[in-house]
């Protein structure tokens, strides 16, 4: 009896994306707040992935908090768009890595995604 080989290529054609958003408020005394997001995006190419990011997060999004202030979130920058490192999901799967010269660089915005 033969069995079909199991395929685990769940991450094929997925791209790993890092983006940063910033919120603003009608309350001028509110401290600034940023959000760093990590996304997995299924796409045919890097440009396609980037377009999907813009479709997903490119438009400002606002709401009111309980104090009546208007909070608006805006995409500040797409930090990186890359194919995931491996196609399959294992017990431990590394999706993304980047090398930096110093620790501070790991937390700064990259300008050449």
């Amino acid at each position: 009896m033969t069995t079909e080989p199991t395929t685990n290529n769940l991450l094929e054609k997925y791209y790993f994306v890092i983006l940063v958003s910033e919120s603003s408020s009608t309350d001028n005394e509110r401290a600034p707040l940023f959000e760093q997001s990590f996304l997995l995006i299924k796409a045919d190419s890097q440009d396609h992935a980037r377009q999907k990011v813009l479709d997903y997060a490119g438009q400002p999004h606002g709401f009111e908090n309980k104090f009546g202030d208007r909070i608006t979130w805006t995409l500040k920058q797409i930090l990186d768009v890359r194919p995931v490192l491996y196609d399959s999901l294992d017990d431990v799967t590394e999706l993304y890595a980047r090398f930096v010269d110093d620790l501070g660089e790991a937390f700064t915005v990259s300008n050449d995604p």
């Binding site: 919120s23 408020s25 309350d27 707040l33 709401f63 009111e64 908090n65 104090f67 909070i71």
Partner: peptide, 10 residues
Amino acid sequence: IRQEFPSQLL
């Protein structure tokens, strides 16, 4: 967190 939270979802 309430400053950042959508009021209608509380």
